[in-house]
Write a protein that binds this DNA or RNA. Structure first.
Lengths: 203, 203
DNA sequence: AAACGTGGTGGAACGTGTTCCAAATTATGC
DNA sequence: GCATAATTTGGAACACGTTCCACCACGTTT
């Protein structure tokens, strides 16, 4: 018996397996984008990705793993895109708000997708630690990068920088949940983030 | 046809209805305490509360409403208990950390219960706005009360106070989710809260 | 007291996440 | 190319949230 799990193993498997994995994540993305969390039904994902239900579960042991993995891919892409350019703004607060607003705009453009991924993130238990960590690191990287104005000098990252980035990430997540669940508007969310960043990053 | 909904209407209904509602919330509490989110099964709640499944759904339209209502009761109790005494500590940060640690200790003593209620809170959509609002207000009240050292002078609440309380509440919620889902330990959570409060409340 | 209406009961039924399995297919070692 | 192992498939089956419905109980109106 092999213990290999195509979704978490470092070994990415054969080309066919990589291809299947990509098809599954693409299908997840599409369904989430058009119908949100509820529309990402395992049978529907399997069908659209053209794999059997059992195969889907072999690659991703639960709907939550599946969605969080999709979120991770999104975040890594966003992080890579943001980090290759310089961040405008004269203060840390301005730069951080710049990237947060940029991300917020992106998410508001795809509310269903955002809802699906955020819900999954909030529901993830310890079995999803690895996938979650990918997302958390990407978020922290984005914020610290903005704090430093786009200088790729990673050595300058103090513990306090990281702590600040994590706190901002926390507030952002809470605000995101409130927005996603329809308990606050986009404008309220933006205002709340401005307040929070202003409080945390007083230069 | 009557539109009355026993769970949200201001009119609490007959004594028998109030009694049923209490039995349901008690059953929810018991099940959550012993088995967490998954153990709060609607059939089990109905049976333990000695009502029919249909009746349970008449009082609480979903499992999420049910759990968030139970959370609201918990929080209001905690808030009332905390607010009737003075908060020790010389600075705002010390006092806020005092109450946060106190609450954290309470929650760590009932991890399953905390898990159930937190999960429900995170999953609640806009149909649960009212119940959520109860919890949010209680949390804000607790933090602002601690900031002011137990002085019941509500007139002294500035907008900034409330904003600060909300940011702290956000960080607390994110930390709670991480703890509940097994992604961080109690000690890490406590340390993170200390960092956050230290950053936000620099006297 | 009879009729009525409101809410409660018991239980069937449905949808979707998840598990399981035997058969078919594909990959691997020789 | 064959034997063997690993993977995929198709689909049945199960669990639990949710909906629905026919019927019952009880208080109110007349």
């Amino acid at each position: 018996m092999t213990i290999a799990n195509p979704s978490t193993s470092d070994d990415l498997g054969s080309a066919a397996q990589r291809e299947r994995r990509k098809r599954i994540l693409d299908a997840t993305y599409e369904l989430a984008k058009s119908g949100g969390f509820d529309a990402v039904q395992m049978r529907a994902v399997a069908e659209q990705a053209d794999v059997a239900l059992g195969t889907l579960y072999r690659y991703f042991p639960s709907k939550i793993h599946l969605l969080v993995s999709a979120l991770g891919r999104q975040f890594e892409d966003a992080s890579a895109r943001l980090n290759e350019r310089d961040i405008p703004g004269d203060t840390q607060a301005e730069r951080v708000l710049y990237v947060l607003k940029r991300m917020a705009r992106g998410m508001q453009g795809d509310p269903k997708l955002t809802e699906a991924l955020t819900r999954a993130f909030m529901f993830a238990d310890s079995s999803v630690t690895n996938e979650i960590h990918v997302v958390g690191m990407a978020m922290t990287t984005i914020v610290t990068h903005a704090m430093h104005g786009g200088v790729p000098d990673e050595g300058a990252l103090t513990d306090e920088d990281v702590a600040i980035a994590r706190v901002i990430g926390d507030v952002w997540l809470s605000a995101l949940v409130a927005w996603v669940t329809g308990r606050s508007t986009a404008a309220e969310t933006a205002a709340h983030m401005e307040t929070a960043v202003g409080l945390i990053l007083r230069d």
